[in-house]
Amino acid sequence: MDILKLIGIAICSVAANMAVREYKREFALVISLVSGAIILVMAINMVTPVFDSINRLCTKYSLDTGHISIIIKIIAISYLTQFASGICSDAGEKNLSSKVELAGRIMIASCVIPIAISVMETIENMIESV
């Protein structure tokens, strides 16, 4: 079970973090950064079968993969933004972490605009065809 390995790594990194924290605070930050990155790498390798099945589903029913790719891009953006803002708030920089989250939201909003436009167009076509 991969989840046990993940939990083990998290607990070990917290222990290592505690050991180093009162002597050198900057190393505690580096350790939390590295452990967060390791856990995310392990988590993201578990996502590939999900995306493969979505891909197969799309090609099988010939769905429009444009919207699906935007959704996946949004997932990637939120994934990394949450990682970065977590690191910043761990280091005590609440201000920086909220700035990173704001930038992430803006990027996600800029991704969503084309979907909204296409929805409006489809509605417009429906109304005209009536």
Binding site: V34, I44, Y79, L80, F83
Partner: peptide, 27 residues
């Protein structure tokens, strides 16, 4: 010591970003 630690941290983060790029951009 901090520079050495940050070098290893950079290696780990570059693998993270590579795997994210590999997985999320095949669309």
């Amino acid at each position: 010591g901090l520079v050495i630690a940050l070098m290893t941290a950079i290696n780990v983060i570059s693998t993270l970003f590579d795997s994210v790029k590999r997985i999320f951009t095949f669309y």
